[in-house]
Simulated assay, not measured.
Amino acid sequence: MHSHLITYCLAKKGAAEDYPFGPSPLVMKVGGKMFALISKPEENGFTHIALKCDPEIAENLREQHAAVQPGYHLNKKHWNTIICDGSLTNSDMQDMIDHSYELVFKSLPKSMRDSISAVI
């Protein structure tokens, strides 16, 4: 699951890896802003991924899925931490990554969005 998340995030236009906190966690950015924070698998083998989320959607996801929790060390209103324990489908995970990426991408200045969108 860990490598799948990284590959999927990096496939996003303008996505880049960063390690601002040391060798872990991996931070995925677009336009210099974080849209995903991916931890290495823990002793239990589960990767954690933090994703930005609309506050209403974030609350609904937390109510529906035990693996979706308020963002760990992040703004709990706007970020969820997802425990990749297999309880969510790959499609669910990809939808949440897409949503996070779009929220961050839309917050970028128009000139930056245009330059990222122009990349083939």
Rank of each mutant, 00 (worst) to 15 (best):
M1L: 07
H2Y: 14
L5V: 04
T7I: 00
C9I: 01
L10T: 10
A11P: 00
A11M: 06
G14S: 09
G14H: 09
A15T: 03
A15D: 05
A16F: 05
A16D: 12
E17M: 07
E17L: 12
Y19F: 15
P20E: 11
P20G: 08
G22D: 14
G22R: 11
P23Q: 15
P23S: 15
P23N: 15
P23D: 15
S24K: 07
S24I: 02
P25I: 04
L26D: 13
V27P: 01
V27K: 05
V30W: 05
V30C: 02
V30F: 02
G31L: 07
G32I: 01
G32R: 03
K33R: 13
K33V: 02
M34E: 08
M34D: 08
F35D: 02
A36M: 04
A36I: 03
L37R: 03
I38A: 02
I38Q: 01
S39H: 14
S39D: 15
K40H: 12
P41I: 04
P41G: 01
E42W: 01
E42R: 04
N44E: 15
N44C: 11
N44T: 14
G45F: 03
F46H: 15
F46L: 09
T47R: 08
I49G: 09
I49F: 10
L51E: 07
L51D: 08
C53L: 12
C53N: 13
C53G: 12
D54F: 02
P55N: 09
E56Y: 01
E56P: 00
E56N: 10
A58D: 06
E59M: 01
N60L: 11
N60M: 10
L61M: 12
L61P: 00
L61Q: 10
R62S: 06
R62W: 05
R62Q: 11
Q64P: 00
H65F: 13
A66N: 12
A66F: 10
A67L: 04
A67P: 01
V68P: 01
P70V: 07
P70W: 12
G71H: 07
G71N: 08
H73S: 10
H73D: 13
L74Q: 09
N75I: 02
N75F: 05
K76D: 09
K77Y: 05
H78T: 07
W79I: 00
W79Q: 02
W79T: 03
W79P: 03
N80F: 03
N80Y: 06
T81I: 05
T81M: 04
I82N: 03
I83W: 08
C84F: 05
C84S: 07
D85E: 08
D85C: 04
G86A: 13
G86H: 11
S87D: 10
S87M: 08
L88N: 07
L88R: 06
L88K: 06
T89Y: 04
T89M: 06
T89N: 04
N90W: 12
S91Q: 14
D92P: 00
M93N: 05
D95R: 10
I97G: 05
D98W: 01
H99A: 14
S100H: 01
Y101I: 00
E102D: 12
L103W: 09
V104N: 13
S107V: 03
P109C: 11
K110W: 10
S111H: 13
S111Y: 11
R113S: 11
D114C: 00
D114F: 00
S115Y: 10
S115R: 14
I116L: 11
I116A: 05
S117L: 11
V119Q: 15
V119S: 14
V119H: 13
